[in-house]
Simulated scan of single mutants.
Amino acid sequence: MTAVSQMKCACDSCLCIVSPNEQAVQKDGKYYCSDACASGHSNGEGCGHTGCDCN
């Protein structure tokens, strides 16, 4: 069996790819690229990654 090494951030509007075993922020069993995405952009901020306009 092969483990997943990369996946899309669980935020619907985000374009980022995360590695569940490394830098991902885990919340409710999902993996996000940043605290902003994991919190549902509660303060209206984006993830801050170049080229991504999520909110």
Rank of each mutant, 00 (worst) to 15 (best):
C16R: 15
E45T: 11
L15V: 06
C47D: 00
C54A: 12
G44V: 07
Y31Q: 12
Y32A: 03
C33L: 14
K30Y: 03
K8H: 07
S42H: 01
Y32V: 05
S34R: 12
Y32C: 01
C16A: 15
A38Y: 04
C16Q: 15
T50C: 06
D12S: 14
A10V: 03
K8E: 08
Q6H: 04
S13Y: 02
C9L: 02
S39T: 11
L15D: 07
G44W: 05
A3V: 05
C16E: 15
Y32K: 01
E45H: 08
G48E: 05
C47H: 00
V25Y: 08
Y32I: 11
A24E: 08
G51W: 07
T2Q: 03
C11P: 01
M7A: 07
M7F: 00
I17N: 03
S19V: 02
D35C: 04
C11K: 10
A24D: 01
S13N: 07
C14N: 01
A24Y: 11
A3C: 04
G40Q: 11
V4R: 12
Q23R: 15
S13A: 14
K30S: 15
H41N: 03
A36R: 05
K30I: 07
I17T: 14
K30W: 00
G29P: 15
V18A: 10
Q26G: 09
D35K: 11
C16P: 02
A36M: 11
D53N: 15
D28Y: 13
S5W: 09
G51R: 06
G48S: 04
C47V: 03
C33N: 10
S13Q: 11
D35Y: 08
K8A: 13
E45G: 08
C54V: 12
M1A: 05
C52G: 11
H49S: 07
H49K: 12
C54Q: 00
D28H: 14
A36F: 12
H41E: 02
Q26M: 14
A10K: 00
Q23P: 08
S5A: 05
E45K: 11
G29K: 15
M7D: 00
H49C: 04
G29T: 14
N55Y: 04
P20M: 06
K8I: 02
S42E: 10
E22W: 08
S13H: 06
H41W: 03
E22G: 01
V18C: 13
V18S: 03
Q23G: 14
S34Q: 15
D35H: 10
A3P: 02
C33R: 09
Q23E: 13
K8F: 05
C47P: 07
G46L: 09
M1W: 04
S39K: 11
C9D: 14
G44M: 04
A38D: 06
N55I: 10
Q6S: 04
D35T: 13
C47S: 00
A3W: 01
Q23M: 08
T2K: 05
C16I: 09
N43W: 00
A38G: 10
D28G: 06
S42L: 03
A36G: 08
G46T: 14
S42C: 00
I17R: 02
H49R: 12
S5D: 09
N21M: 10
Y31S: 07
Y31R: 06
C33Y: 10
C16T: 11
I17A: 03
C9G: 04
E22A: 09
A24N: 11
D28T: 14
A38W: 06
A24W: 05
K27D: 12
S42W: 00
C54S: 10
G51A: 09
M1E: 01
